[in-house]
Every structure is written in C-alpha cells, then in structure tokens.
Design a protein around this nucleic acid. Structure first.
Ligand SMILES: [Zn+2]
Length: 199
DNA sequence: TGTGCCGGGAG
DNA sequence: CTCCCGGCACA
C-alpha cells in the first residue's frame, strides 16, 4: 500500500494588507493543516502559503505564489513606494519525519539568529511600538521583493554568522530594571536574547 | 557608562 | 537540561 503521508501542523503568523492609502496589520495565528500525500524520499519540502485573509492557497514554488498573489490580490493595485512590490505569502517547511517546531517554550535556548521563528517575531516589536504609539504604519511582509527581481534561487548556503545587530526595542532589563530582575523573561535573566520583546 | 547577548561553564 | 556570568559590540 502506498504511503498515505503524514499530517503536519504548521503555524504561520503574519498577514499584512495594504489598501489604497491606508495600511493595517493583522497579527493572527493562521493555523493550517497540511496533508502530505506524496510518497517521496525527501524528508522536507518547502511550500509557499498565501497569507491573504482567508485565502489558504499554497503552491510548490515561489514564482507560483507570487503570480497568485499578484493576479488574485494585487490586481488593481499600484506599486508601493517606488517600484517596490509586496507579496503576501510565507515559506513553510513541511517536516515529514522531524517533529513540528516547538511552539510552546518559545522561551528556551536555541540559536537566536538564523531562527525561522526569529523573523516572525516582529510582532513583539509591533506590540511595543503600538503601545508607545510610534509606529508609522509601515508594515513589512514576509517577502518583499524589489523591482520584481527574479530570485536567482539562493543556493541554500549562508554559513557565516550574521552577528545579531542590536535591536531598537527596550528589553526586560531596561523596562523592569535591575531591582525587579524576577520580572524579566528567562532569556534576559540569563543574558540571552530577549524572548519577550523581539526585534 | 549602560544595555543586549554570545559563548562558555557549573551543577 | 537550568542557571549564571565574562567580556564584547554597540548605544
Ligand atoms: Zn526579555
């Protein structure tokens, strides 16, 4: 009997939409169930999932999802700031054997940068910016291409550690102060990258 | 001088 | 694994 495939759960966060002259960002946990029916040796594969509200289309290639987004959602839309075009999709990895990414303790140890979750963490920033009312309403999307530059298919290799650049957000230490260390997030207590207020 | 945190270490 | 901190980059 043919392998029926595994069911993999993935969580994608992020929906950014821009309307005429107003932008708004929705932070949702868009949970999807993806069913893998292929019986292939590959252990993982990338699927591109549209994040347009209530559109769950996903495709196998980057080009396909871009075409989808452009034709279905950005149809009557002018390019944003000078030749900049936004796309609304996320790249998700289907793990067939490896367990789904740990969504709970997002807290504990793991290489902070080069972390897939790392980029989706802008929400932490959003929260802080919104609370302090200093957000110029310029949301970023998971994928933003400039001038439609066709991606030359990055060869999947980036060994050099980017050496995390200091973010702008205030972290637990500055917020709560040394005198209330117990209120810091675990990472801050351990002098690791803050997990409560990401960058 | 203070903050953020990597790399390393102790238990 | 949990927890701590030296020392460095950056502000
Ligand atoms: Zn923190």
């Amino acid at each position: 009997m043919i392998g029926l495939g595994h069911e993999t759960k993935h969580v994608v966060r992020w929906v950014t939409l821009v309307t005429g002259n107003e932008s708004k960002t929705t932070d949702i946990w868009n949970e999807i169930n993806l069913i893998k029916l292929l019986d292939i040796k590959n252990l993982t594969r990338i699927v591109f999932q549209c994040t347009w509200p209530s559109c769950l289309k996903n495709t196998a290639t980057c080009e396909a999802i871009e075409a989808h987004v452009r034709n279905e959602h950005l149809k009557d839309r002018v390019l944003l700031h000078s030749g900049e075009e936004e796309f609304y999709y996320t790249e998700i990895e289907l793990g067939l054997t490896s367990p789904p990414p740990t969504l709970s303790h997002r807290d504990m140890a793991r290489p902070p940068y080069e972390d897939p979750e790392y980029q989706r963490q802008l929400v932490g920033t959003m929260r802080q910016n919104i609370l302090s009312g200093t957000v110029p309403i310029i949301p970023q999307s998971p994928h933003k291409l400039l001038k439609l530059s066709p991606r030359p298919h990055s060869p999947k290799v980036t060994p050099v550690s980017p050496r995390r650049v200091r973010g702008e957000n205030k972290k637990c230490r500055k917020i709560y102060g040394m005198e209330h260390r117990e209120q810091w997030c675990t990472q801050c207590k351990w002098k690791k990258a803050c997990s409560r207020f990401g960058d």
